[in-house]
Computed example of a mutant assay.
Amino acid sequence: MEAEYIDASEAAKSLVWLDRLLKEVNAIDEESIPTLMMDNQSAIKLIESLFFDERPKHIEIRFHLIRQMVQENRI
């Protein structure tokens, strides 16, 4: 679960960068929201969770950026 969560976080950063680039050159609609697909249900539940559990405390804070992006409806 940890590896999938970290990979999803890194993919989300790239996805947001690419989304901004495509919107800047008017290649996509300003209203569109990019979608990140993944199949690990544990990682998805951790991303969508509004509360931090004790279990994933060892995951570095920088990887929790994906949770913020989902809550802000950026991905």
Rank of each mutant, 00 (worst) to 15 (best):
L50G: 09
A3Y: 08
R20K: 11
Q71G: 07
S9N: 01
K23A: 09
P56H: 05
I33K: 11
M38V: 12
S9G: 02
D7M: 00
N73F: 04
W17Q: 09
E72A: 15
A11Y: 05
M69T: 01
Y5A: 11
E72G: 01
D19E: 01
D19C: 14
A8Y: 07
P56L: 06
M38F: 15
I6R: 11
A11F: 05
R55Q: 08
I59W: 04
Q71N: 06
I44A: 10
E48L: 09
Q68P: 00
M1A: 08
P34Q: 04
E2P: 04
R67K: 11
E54D: 06
P56N: 10
D19S: 15
A12E: 03
A43S: 07
S49G: 04
I28R: 07
N26V: 15
P34D: 02
A43H: 01
I75M: 13
Q68V: 08
L65T: 07
I75R: 01
K45R: 14
E31R: 09
T35M: 05
A43R: 02
I6C: 06
N40S: 10
M69R: 13
N40M: 10
E24M: 09
E54F: 07
R55P: 03
V70P: 02
L36N: 12
A11V: 10
L36V: 13
L46T: 02
I28Y: 07
L50D: 11
R67N: 02
M69N: 12
Q71F: 11
P56M: 06
D7T: 06
K13P: 00
R67F: 05
R20C: 14
F51R: 10
L46S: 01
R67M: 09
W17K: 12
K13T: 08
A12K: 09
L65R: 00
E24G: 08
Q68S: 01
I59A: 02
M37S: 12
L36R: 12
L15V: 04
V25E: 14
P34W: 05
M38W: 15
Q71P: 03
E48V: 06
A11R: 13
E30V: 06
N40E: 13
A8L: 11
V70T: 06
D39A: 15
L22Y: 06
M69E: 06
I75N: 02
I6W: 09
E30C: 12
H64K: 06
E2K: 15
F63Y: 14
S9V: 03
Y5M: 12
Q71T: 04
D29C: 15
N73Q: 05
A27C: 09
M38N: 10
I28C: 04
E24T: 00
I44Y: 15
I59F: 09
A12Q: 07
M37T: 07
L21W: 10
E31F: 15
A3D: 05
K57T: 00
T35I: 13
H64M: 10
W17V: 02
R74N: 04
